[in-house]
Each structure stands twice: as C-alpha cells, then as structure tokens.
C-alpha cells in the first residue's frame, strides 16, 4: 500500500489504464476447482481470451487436468484472439454434457 503512495502520479495513472478487473462466471467442474461461482481477476487491459486461459491455468493448475475448456463472452463462444473488455460477461465453459 505504501508503494502506491510513492509512485509518481503519471505512473499511477498508467497502471490504472493498463489493468482491468474481470468477472468470470464458473459452472460445473470449474466452479468446484475454483471453489466459488464467480471469480474476480486483475488482468492486463490488453488481455485476450487465450491470455486469460493461460492466466487461469497458472492460477488453478487443476484446470490443466480437464479435457478442455472454452471461454464465453456475452453468452457466446469467444475466439482465442478476442480482446476482453472490463464489462464483458465472461464465463468458463468446461466440457459440456447436456442432452
């Protein structure tokens, strides 16, 4: 906390611009792995779907044991290179098993 007071004003502004807070909805096995139905995560403002997947795999190694998982943005499957925005509705989609 002290550190942020020592930062020059300009740098502080830069930091604020370069980070964003993402909310990620979790279902099924991913909800059990993370231990809650929604996850809040600090990510770089340039974060892509692929980058978010890497970030999550690192933070929750049990995700690496899944058959696969996809990311949905605003209720639709998102491509790996999609660039996330702070207010996107993001969800992790582990292997589906409906029907």
């Amino acid at each position: 906390m002290l550190c942020s007071y020592e930062l020059p004003g300009v740098y502080e502004t830069l930091l604020a611009i370069e980070q964003m807070k993402l909310k990620i909805a979790l279902f099924g096995i991913t909800k059990e792995i993370v231990g809650k139905p929604e996850l809040e995560l600090e990510a770089s403002a340039e974060q892509s779907v692929a980058g978010l997947i890497d970030q999550l795999r690192e933070k929750y190694p049990a995700l690496n044991e899944l058959t696969s998982f996809a990311v949905a943005v605003n209720s639709d499957y998102a491509a790996d290179d999609y660039q996330l925005h702070e207010h996107d509705e993001i969800a992790l989609i582990p292997p589906v098993s409906g029907g």
């Binding site: 949905a72 582990p94 589906v96 409906g98 029907g99």
Partner: peptide, 11 residues
C-alpha cells in the same frame, strides 16, 4: 449438436 455446444453440465 446440442450435446456438443450447449452449456449444460451433468453430474
């Protein structure tokens, strides 16, 4: 197709 794409999970 539903079994492949619809986000529903069975425990």
């Amino acid at each position: 197709t539903i079994k492949k794409v619809v986000p529903i999970w069975k425990k």
